[in-house]
Write a protein that binds this DNA or RNA. Structure first.
Lengths: 277, 277
DNA sequence: ACAAAAGTGTTGTACTTACACCCATGA
DNA sequence: TCATGGGTGTAAGTACAACACTTTTGT
């Protein structure tokens, strides 16, 4: 094509038909002439349970990859925004009325052969929801499960489509966000201790951090931790079985919005994947 | 392993039989029942010219946003991968035979109203091509121009669709990549001096960096800079008008692949946008 | 000689690490 | 009293900003 690279505006602007299409000059607009795609969203929902990182998976019931585990997701509706679709699917699959604490787009995945039925481009998102205090025991028709990420990545648990790739990319994005933002507190449903925050980092990064140094570092981040009043503590955390044998810790609250950290948390070399003896 | 965090089955599982749908058991598969989208790619092509950051834009010739500047891009073909489509469009618009030095996905943009003609989801990419030594003066059918990013963002140059948003996001991604990878050398077409690299950082970040400290910092990054042999210098850079009045510099070559830096470059607070007196 | 760019030395400041140590509580 | 986790002190090591200074060329 034209080796376009010039400054003076002498050149005639051509370009054409669709979007930014440079080809097919002045072709009459005909929507049916353009290839039709199906567009879906898939959401990687991260949460912490028992000090380990989990993701929400559903078990498929229909032919492509039947019975295999898959990320929650579905088709984008005709007049629906992409983030809107992600929030809708997330709400439908998890039944959580309050939205996620964080929702971020990961990217588009559109390999021509990723779905044998038709050409699909999926927009992947990842989200963080806090560890819910009460597991909501009474539910019979369970179609969604929380699976530990270690079991998925280390073990050979099969995921549908390219969802393994998406999960790996989402995990890397999450790890990166813990480095340079205050996202970690999004894993906490209520008032939390600094050691709770440290356990988030340890679970997501797969490392062990010095409690003392972590404490100082976190306290120095402006606008992250506001101390909880005493009354709050008493009312909130009394039901929990958080009866620890040590010195009682101070509880904190974090603002709703995630903020960028000026000096990022440093992620050490990933050591042992096993955590507690 | 499956500690079933689920919601009561009161809510209808919803979501159709497609993609990630864990629900809707045996719904007959009917492709025509799903909304059809057009999928496009748009590419933000960054390059350096005259010590300033530029992007490649095309001027539209058809109704939606006619005569407005737009990012190069176009429809994804039915059996084409997303990155493949981006590379094809980039080659068609720029006429550059050798591919870009870096190509990375930015994300999907799919506001329902972003294109009045039909429902379009575009997958945005950003790329780096080196500043070409010879501006290739003799080209008549030029429909693409390099525009300085300052003129676009500061000035009120109108961009088609949501391309201003895409450009801003791409610029932020580029700035981030300069922090933690060796991407900067992708702007250099051949052997380069450390001060050339510094000028890349200064142009992209809009800051002024200490030459001395920059030198030490860059040299310490393992695997980034390999010194050029003397013959290479003589043959490559003789034609250039790079006759500087100072002490001649050492020239370097960088490996083709972009590597992550262990200790990232620190981006100071953005100061004055103007550079040279 | 002078200007200008390349490259090196030096110093103060800030942050990180590793580890010791004290504090406060339950058992 | 002891075990356990919360929190602080401290000293060595590292990294960086600022700026002076030397080196090597063109004019």
């Amino acid at each position: 094509m034209a080796s376009a690279r010039r400054r003076p505006s002498s050149g005639t602007p051509s370009s054409a038909g669709g979007e930014g299409a440079g080809a097919s000059p002045d072709a009459a607009y005909d929507p049916s002439a353009f290839p039709a795609f199906a567009v879906t969203v898939d959401v990687v929902v991260f949460t912490l349970e028992g000090g380990r990182l989990h993701v929400l998976l559903v078990q498929r019931g229909t032919p492509p990859h039947e019975r295999a585990w898959a990320l929650p997701g579905g088709f984008v509706l005709p007049r629906e925004g992409l983030e809107e679709a992600a929030r809708r699917e997330l709400a439908e699959e998890t039944g959580i009325e309050s939205g996620p604490r964080h929702l971020e787009q990961l990217g588009a995945y559109g390999d021509p052969d990723r779905d044998p039925r038709m050409r699909v481009v999926t927009v992947a998102w990842w989200a963080v929801i806090p560890e819910l205090p009460t597991p909501q025991a009474g539910s019979d028709a369970a179609f969604a499960d929380l699976i530990g990420v270690d079991e998925i990545l280390d073990g050979q648990l099969e995921l549908a489509f390219d969802h393994r790739q998406i999960l790996e990319d989402a995990l890397e994005a999450l790890r990166q966000r813990l480095e340079d933002t205050t996202l970690a507190s999004a894993f906490e449903p209520g008032p939390f201790r600094i050691s709770d925050l440290r356990r988030v980092y340890e679970a997501v990064w797969g490392v062990r951090l010095e409690p003392g140094n972590f404490q100082r570092k976190v306290r120095k981040v402006p606008g992250w931790l506001e101390p909880c009043a005493e009354e709050e503590m008493l009312s909130m955390r009394l039901d929990e079985s958080e009866v620890a044998p040590g010195r009682p810790a101070q509880y904190f609250r974090a603002p709703d919005s995630i903020r960028a950290m000026l000096s990022p948390m440093r992620r050490p070399e990933e050591d042992d994947p096993d955590a507690a003896p």
